[in-house]
Design a protein around this nucleic acid. Sequence first.
DNA 1: TAGTGGTCTAGACCACATC
DNA 2: ATGTGGTCTAGACCACTAC
Lengths: 260, 260
Amino acid sequence: MTSSARAPRGATSDYRAIAHELREAITAGRYQPGDKLPSERALAEQHGAARNTVREAIAALRREGLVSAEHGRGVFVRAKPRWMRFGRRRYSAAMRATNELGPFGAEAVAQGRRPHVDSRITRIEAPAEVAERLGIVPGTLVVQRENWYFADDEPLQIGITYATWSLVEGNPLADSADLGPEGIYGQFAALGHVITHVREEISARMPTREEAQRMTIPDGVPVIDLWHTGINADREPFEVTRFVMRADFAALDYDMPVED
Amino acid sequence: MTSSARAPRGATSDYRAIAHELREAITAGRYQPGDKLPSERALAEQHGAARNTVREAIAALRREGLVSAEHGRGVFVRAKPRWMRFGRRRYSAAMRATNELGPFGAEAVAQGRRPHVDSRITRIEAPAEVAERLGIVPGTLVVQRENWYFADDEPLQIGITYATWSLVEGNPLADSADLGPEGIYGQFAALGHVITHVREEISARMPTREEAQRMTIPDGVPVIDLWHTGINADREPFEVTRFVMRADFAALDYDMPVED
DNA sequence: TAGTGGTCTAGACCACATC
DNA sequence: ATGTGGTCTAGACCACTAC
C-alpha cells in the first residue's frame, strides 16, 4: 500500500482493497459472526497503511452492516439476525383469541428471546399525519399510546397508537397499559369498532440520530417506517399506529386477495 | 474548535458540532435543496478545524441522506423526492384492463417523469429462494425476466420475475419483452393461471456495493427488498418476482381485509 | 488552470473496556 | 496499566469538473 501515493487511484484505492479483503474473509467464514477483527493499528501495520486508511475501510464495512465497532473493545463481525415476521393475521380474531403475548411477544418467544413492552400513555392534540388518516381535524384530542418493544432488553421496535379521545374515554385504552386478554383490538371491538380492514403504508429510511440513540441501532441498519390504519366494518378508520422497526430484525409478510 | 484537543470529548465533538450546524441550516431552509455547501476547505477555515474533521461532519450528513457529494463539483443538499406508491391493486384485473403502462409507468407519468423499462430474458436453473416459493425442486428450469425500471433515465427499481419453463414455453413470457396490452398477468391468465392472491415479503437493507453502483443509489439510501409471489385460484403459486427498489422514492401502500 | 472532493500519511490525545 | 476505538491535526497528491 506504500505505492498508493504514487499509483493512480480511481477504480481502486487502498481502503477499498483493505475493505475488500476483510469483506471476503467474513463472507468466506474465516471470521465468524461475533469474531473480533484485528485492531486498527494491527491492520494498519499488516497493510503498511496509516491507521486512518484502515478506519476508512472499516467505516465502509460498518455502512454495509457487516461489522460493528465497540469503543474500547474492538470491531466485531455482526451476527446475521433471524427475522421476526409480521403479517396480516396479527389482526385477526383468531390471533387475538389464542395469543396472550401479541404478535411481537409470540415472535420473540418463538426465537427464544425474552419479550417485554414498555408503555407510556398520554393525551395530545392530533398531529397532521394522524388526523389525516383518522379523518379528523388536526388538533382534535387523541390518546397516544407509545409502546416500546424489547427482546432481551434490546429495543427493537416502537409503535405509537392514536385514537380519538372521545372514543376511548372511560375505556382502558385511555389510560391503562393492561388491555386484557384480547388486547387492543378486543377493546376497540367492545367500543363498537371491529377491525375488518387494515391499511399499511410502508417505507424504509435511515434512522434519525435520535432513533439511532434511543433504539441503539447499529451502523448501516435502516428502519422500516410503517403507518398502520385500523378500519371497521363501516369502512371507517378508528385507530392509527406508527411503527418504527429495526430493519435488520423485522420483516413483513402479507398474503392477501387481489380483489376484496 | 481549536479547544477540542484540550477539552474533554464524549457527549460532543467538533465534527458533530459542525454537522449539527449544517444540518440545522439545511432544515431551517438556509440551504435549499440543490444548493451547494461551502467547500470542505472553506468550512475547515471557518471552523478553525482540519479538513478531515469537516469531512467527518459531511460523512455523517451523507449517511443521513441529507447531502450528496459530487466529485469535483461540491456537496449539495439533496432534494426530498416524491414517492411512488405501489399497492395491492396493481394486480387487479381492472388495473390490467385500463393501464397500458403498468403500475410503474402510471406512477412515473403521474409524477411528470418519463418511464422506461429495459428487459433481459434468460432461462436458468431455479435458485433455492425461487424454488422454495414456487414449490418446485431447486435446479428446475425457469424463465428469468429481469426488468430495470427507469424514470428520466434514472434506474429506480429492478424486478426479476421467475416462472417454470415448462409453463411458459411457447408463450411470449418465455422470450418476448412485449407482453401485449394486458401485460404479464394477462399472459399468465391465458395459460390458465389467474392471479387471485399475492404474498408479499418485505424487508429493507442497505444496498450491496454492486446495487449501489448499478442503480446509482446515493449515500444513506436503503433499498426495499420485496419478494412477491403470484397465487392462482387453486391457491398454487405460479410466479415469483423479486423487487429491489430505492427506498427514497418507493413506498408500499396496501389495504386489505383482515380475514380472507 | 483553478477549485472541488477523494485518498492518504504520521503522528497526537481522549474515552472506554479489560485485567 | 494496557489496548481498543474515537477524534483531531496539518499537511500531501490524485481525479474530476468547470471555465
